[in-house]
Amino acid sequence: MCERLVILLSLAVTLVVALPQNYGGGGGRGKQLQPLQQQNAPMNYDFQWEVNDQEYANFYGQKEVATNGRVEGSYHVLLPDNRLMKVTYYVDGDSGFVPTITYENNYSPSWGSPYYGRR
């Protein structure tokens, strides 16, 4: 009987310790959550990257911007036959990935210069 009581008390202490602590003061239980739409609002971002290596003839990169749920971007790849494949795309709501693919024949990269330019 005593062993069961010790186990039961140990479980109770573990549960109490595992409860979230209110370190902010002001009574966390009365705090209301933000509406679900605000919590899951899309995050805006802007990034780009590029590989530009003349020694190994590697020339490719990507640029992408997201604003209020709409994503627009592009990427480029220098193909072995010296064509530059460029893909511009967007995603807006439920549209999915919508690409436009173009090729530029006999492309000669400006080695050491960024394709997208400086920000």
Results as ranks from 00 to 15, higher is better:
Thr88Arg: 03
Gln37Leu: 10
Tyr45Cys: 06
Tyr75Asp: 11
Ala41Asp: 04
Tyr90Pro: 00
Gln34Glu: 15
Glu64Ala: 04
Thr88Lys: 03
Tyr45Glu: 04
Gln38His: 03
Asn44Arg: 08
Val77Asn: 12
Thr67Trp: 05
Asp46Gly: 13
Tyr89Phe: 15
Leu36Lys: 11
Arg83Leu: 03
Tyr56Asp: 07
Asp94Pro: 11
Glu64Gln: 09
Leu79Gly: 05
Trp49Phe: 13
Leu84Met: 12
Gln39Ser: 02
Val91Cys: 12
Asn44Pro: 05
Gly61Phe: 08
Asn68Ser: 12
Val71His: 01
Arg83Val: 06
Tyr90Lys: 11
Val77Thr: 14
Asn44Tyr: 10
Asn40Leu: 15
Pro35His: 12
Pro35Met: 09
Gln38Asp: 15
Gly61Asn: 08
Glu64Thr: 06
Met85Cys: 10
Gln54Glu: 15
Asp94Ser: 14
Leu78Phe: 02
Gly93Val: 08
Asn68Leu: 09
Met43Arg: 13
Gln37His: 02
Tyr89Glu: 10
Asp92Arg: 08
Gln62Met: 09
Gln62His: 14
Gln48Asp: 07
Gly93Met: 06
Ala57Pro: 00
Leu79Phe: 10
Gly93Ile: 05
Trp49Tyr: 13
Tyr45Ala: 05
Met85Pro: 07
Tyr75Gln: 06
Trp49Lys: 15
Gly73Glu: 02
Asn44Gln: 06
Leu78Ser: 04
Gly61Arg: 01
Phe59Ala: 04
Glu50Thr: 04
Tyr56Ala: 11
Asn52Ala: 11
Tyr56Gly: 02
Asp53Trp: 10
Pro42Ala: 14
Thr67Tyr: 06
Gly93Leu: 06
Gly93Tyr: 02
Ser74Lys: 02
Val65Thr: 08
Ser74Leu: 11
Gln62Asp: 00
